[in-house]
Structures are given as structure tokens and as C-alpha cells.
Design a protein around this nucleic acid. Structure first.
Lengths: 216, 216
DNA sequence: CAGAACTCGAACACGTTTGTTCAGGTTGAC
DNA sequence: GTCAACCTGAACAAACGTGTTCGAGTTCTG
């Protein structure tokens, strides 16, 4: 324990000190953020990146990393949290009112870039973190989609014959599928948002004349 | 060279079996196909299963496994190949003629059980085998879907404003998403085929009145 | 200057997995 | 019975990942 760097929070002592130490702590925190950014980038490139890889990407020693994050899971969790915060920030800026179909289109457009760049991070987290944690972090984003869908349903614009959860799953599934197709060169990244929206709108809006009824 | 067992099995003389010491011995005499079945089951339960796990599941020594398959990748590849063969066999039995929408529905119904049970195997393979290999093994199944979609397009039943490849991706993506939702208890397995079909038909059929047209 | 705070590389202990080698056991063919 | 094919567990080497410890360096502060 003697060799363990004290970590980011030693606030007990600096309560009264005016500027100098506070600056250092600010530095440390900024440092951590930039480390997280690097780790995020690293995980985005390779979901199997080791702690050593992330440390190198951050230009930092592996030991230093373990000083800030007790375990690899902690680090991944922090990266995930940061990722979702950024995502939420971007999504908060999009208007989700008005016509549900247009709202969904806008939301997809805003989400696409994020998913496109970070779905690898999510995959890494999905494999290494407990499911309830994943669920918790996704909650806000999930809720956002669900709200639009519910609203569209009430307005009669979205179909009523499928489970809500499945409709939400559909949205996320197609986004990630598009991300993988893009990474594999099978889909143009610039066209993806349009394609996803067009597919989703058709899939989720109220059944039209084109759908054959399997009933008698 | 000494470590490599010569033959694939002793199927020619297995007619008489007087009094085997234990069942494990009998298990040990099973042929490669049944080993692959066990490995398949093992991978279906846990995509991260080690060679030791698969050997144990097959009731066979790890060394014996390495006698049949030079590396772990070879084993996974063999399991994948067998999986796709079974899948193809099941899919060959389904009628893909007639109305493209109904054909797609039938194909989804037939595929669902397979994907439902084996998508974990596919994930394992996806992570450990080179992408072109995955692509090659999937080719027949891919082609099957593509054929229906192309036919539906020509008939004017399926929409024309999305890349074919994306439409194929949509089919597979939703199937796997449903498999995961089912595993997580968010979707009823018995209802899945209906839900998938209903979603896909809406997503892929020609735009109806419910879809807001972006152009005149 | 002294010391706290933070950092660093090197190296260690530990676990897991892959793939190989070895010495021996069972089985059916001849 | 003998022999070869086939199987087996035990044990090994090598690689890789995680987490910890050590000794030493830097930098800012008092």
C-alpha cells in the first residue's frame, strides 16, 4: 500500500489551501480525462486492447494507470461512463419533440456518428462488465428512444403490434449493424444515417397496405 | 508426426461391442462428428470455451482433440462448417418460391431456431477466424436471402431505395438481435419468429402510405 | 533544502490458454 | 499372443494478461 499512488482524491487536506494545490488536482483530473480519451480511442480501435496498450496510447506508464484505476474493469467502466456522457451530451442537443417520425430521424442522425465511432467500446464493455452495469449506463439513451416510440404509438404513427422493447432493440440493433457494415466497407458511412432512418421508419410505423396479413 | 492419429475413426468395426468397461470408453470411441456436436453445444453455451472445456464436453482427452485438429482455430472452423451444413440442410427443406414476402417469412421461421441456438457459435467463430473465412461459410445462407430479396425487388414487392447488401444485413442483424434479446429474457422465444418477420416485412417491403416520402 | 505527490520502467507472482511430449492403457486385427 | 492403432492423463514449455512491488526520478511546495 505504501507504493500505491494516492489517487485523484486527496481532498481531506486541501480544503483550505487556496490556489496551488487545487491547480494540481485540476491538472490531475484533466490528466485522467485525457487518459480516458486515449483509452477510449484505443478500445474503439480494438476491443481486446490490454491495459498495457491503453497505457501506451495514453503516453503513460501502466503502473500509473493502475494507480488511478484499481482494476482493468474499473478502467473500462470509466471509459464507458465517459463515452455515454459524451453521447448524452450530443443527444441532449437534439430536438426530440414534434412529429415522432421526424424526431426519430433526428435522433438517429445524432446517434449515428457516436455509434459509428464507439460501438467497439460498447462491445468491449459488454464483454467485460456485468450486464446490469451495462444496462444502467445505457438507461438514459434507452429511455430516450423509448419515449419517442411511446409517443409515436400514442399518436398512432407507430405500430402497436410489436413489444415496445423489441422496437427499441430494433433501433439499436440496426445502428450497430450499420456500424459493422461500415467498418467492413459494405456500407457508405455518409449514407448510413439515411439508410438506417429509412429502414427504421418503415419497420416501426403503422402497418400499411403492403404487409400481407397471415391471418385467415 | 508420431502424435497424429492416422484414421478418422473405427466406424467399420464398431458393430460388436461385448462389455465395455465404462461409458467413457465408449464415448472415446465415438467419431469425429459426435465430437464436433459436443464442441458445438459447448460453444453454443459459452463462446469463450477453451479446448479443454470442449474436450470434456465431448468426453474425450484434450490430446485426442489435438490429434484431430491441429489448432484451436481448426477446431472452431470445423464446428462452424458443421453448423452451417446443418443450417443449410434445414434451410434447403424450406420453400423459397412463390410470393417473396411469404418466402421471406418462411425462411425466417426456419432460420430462427438455428440462429436462436447457435448464434453464440457464430460469435465465437467471428472472433477467432479470419473474416474472409466467415464470409465464405456464410455465403450460401447469404445468397439465399439475397435471392429472395432480389426477386421481391423485381416483383415490386420490396423497396428499391436501399442497398441490397444493407437489406440482407438487416435480416441477419434482426435475427441475432432477437437471439440476444431472447437469451436476456426480453423476448419470448416462441413469439420471436413472428416478431422478426413482422418487423422485416415492414422494413423491406415497398414504401406504403405510412412512410413519409422525402421526394415528390 | 526537505518532503509530499506523482510518475516511471523493470521485474515479479499468478493465472489462464495453447500446443507438445511422454509413458502407459485399451482394443481389435492378424 | 503379438502388434499396431488409438486413446489417455500428467506434465511441460511458451506466451500473454493482470495486478503488485521496488527503486528511482521529477516537480512543485513549504
Amino acid at each position: 500500500m505504501a507504493a500505491t499512488p494516492r489517487g485523484a482524491g486527496d481532498r481531506s487536506r486541501s480544503a483550505q489551501r487556496p490556489a496551488p494545490q487545487a491547480e494540481r488536482r485540476a491538472d490531475a483530473r484533466r490528466n485522467i480525462k485525457s487518459i480516458l480519451d486515449a483509452a477510449q480511442l484505443c478500445l474503439a480501435r480494438d476491443a481486446d486492447a490490454s491495459v498495457a496498450d491503453m497505457a501506451k496510447a495514453a503516453g503513460v506508464g501502466r503502473v500509473t494507470l493502475y494507480g488511478h484505476f484499481k482494476t482493468r474493469a474499473d478502467l473500462v467502466d470509466a471509459v464507458l461512463t465517459r463515452t455515454m456522457e459524451q453521447s448524452d451530451a450530443a443527444l441532449d442537443a437534439t430536438d426530440t419533440t414534434g412529429d415522432p417520425r421526424e424526431a426519430l430521424t433526428r435522433l438517429v442522425g445524432a446517434s449515428w456518428r457516436i455509434v459509428h465511432q464507439l460501438h467497439s467500446v460498447l462491445r468491449a464493455a459488454h464483454r467485460e462488465l456485468p450486464p446490469e452495469r451495462i444496462r444502467a449506463v445505457h438507461d438514459r439513451t434507452l429511455q430516450r428512444v423509448q419515449t419517442i416510440i411511446d409517443r409515436g404509438r400514442d399518436a398512432g404513427a407507430f405500430r402497436d403490434d410489436l413489444p415496445q422493447r423489441w422496437m427499441v432493440t430494433t433501433v439499436f440493433s440496426l445502428m450497430h449493424a450499420a456500424a459493422e457494415d461500415t467498418a467492413a466497407g459494405r456500407l457508405d458511412a455518409d449514407d448510413a444515417a439515411r439508410v438506417i432512418s429509412a429502414t427504421l421508419l418503415a419497420a416501426l410505423t403503422a402497418p400499411g397496405t403492403a404487409v400481407p396479413a397471415p391471418a385467415p
